[in-house]
């Protein structure tokens, strides 16, 4: 009971934390989805030495632990002369990290589009950019929705690590309230509840896409 009261009284802290989490995740997705698609195009279409270099870079980036990457960005930005709020270091590291994963996801999704689709598109005179825009990407949006949804949930979870570099997101808020009021269960339970809610929203979106997919592909 005491715990619930504490959480309710500190609700502005929680809301601020949740808002930061959401803004980080949405900001990240807004950047990393388009860049990830471009990266996937490079991974698919670029001439060989460049493509292999890119593939190695993406592979390597996916082996970096996110927390360490966040630290490097956090301590690295001032070295470049940029004295920014930790939130920006958080956004940058989250974006770089998520882009590498999305590039790989989109690359696999491009390959999953039936080759005869693309061949027919070529036969009908569609240009490369038209083929991506009208044939490949629309299908990828539908068929890769579950995998992308999974990645979004992963990004939400990764965002919590940013508390360690003092970004005031949701887990930071829970930890703060718990440390200041000595009732650990309620604040963390509240945070977990909010993360669960975010997860549900993403999964609902994926289920929606699954319905679209059933309608078009059977």
């Amino acid at each position: 009971m005491n715990g619930l009261l504490v959480v309710w009284e500190s609700r502005d802290v929680f809301l601020w934390g949740a808002a930061n989490t959401l803004s980080l995740v949405l900001g990240c997705l807004l950047l990393s989805i388009p860049i990830g698609i471009l990266g996937a195009v490079v991974l698919t279409e670029a001439p060989d030495p460049l493509r292999r270099l890119f593939a190695e870079a993406v592979d390597l980036l996916r082996c970096v632990p996110f927390l360490l990457l966040a630290y490097v960005v956090y301590y690295g930005l001032p070295e470049l002369g940029l004295r920014l709020d930790p939130w920006w270091a958080g956004l940058m590291s989250l974006t770089v990290y998520t882009t590498a994963y999305l590039a790989e996801i989109f690359r696999a999704a491009f390959r999953a589009v039936a080759p005869d689709n693309i061949e027919a598109a070529h036969a009908f005179g569609l240009s490369r950019s038209l083929i991506y825009r009208r044939i490949i990407l629309p299908q990828v949006a539908i068929t890769a929705a579950p995998v992308i949804g999974n990645q979004v949930i992963t990004t939400i979870r990764d965002s919590a690590l940013l508390m360690i570099i003092t970004v005031q997101e949701l887990t930071f808020a829970a930890n703060f309230v718990s440390a200041n009021h000595f009732t650990p269960f309620a604040p963390f339970a509240a945070a977990v509840g909010l993360y669960l809610l975010m997860s549900f929203v993403v999964e609902a979106g994926v289920r929606r896409m699954e319905r679209v997919r059933k309608g078009r592909y059977g």
Partner: peptide
């Protein structure tokens, strides 16, 4: 085409 190659989406 032999296997139709229609665009499913």
């Amino acid at each position: 085409f032999q296997h139709f190659a229609l665009w499913p989406h």
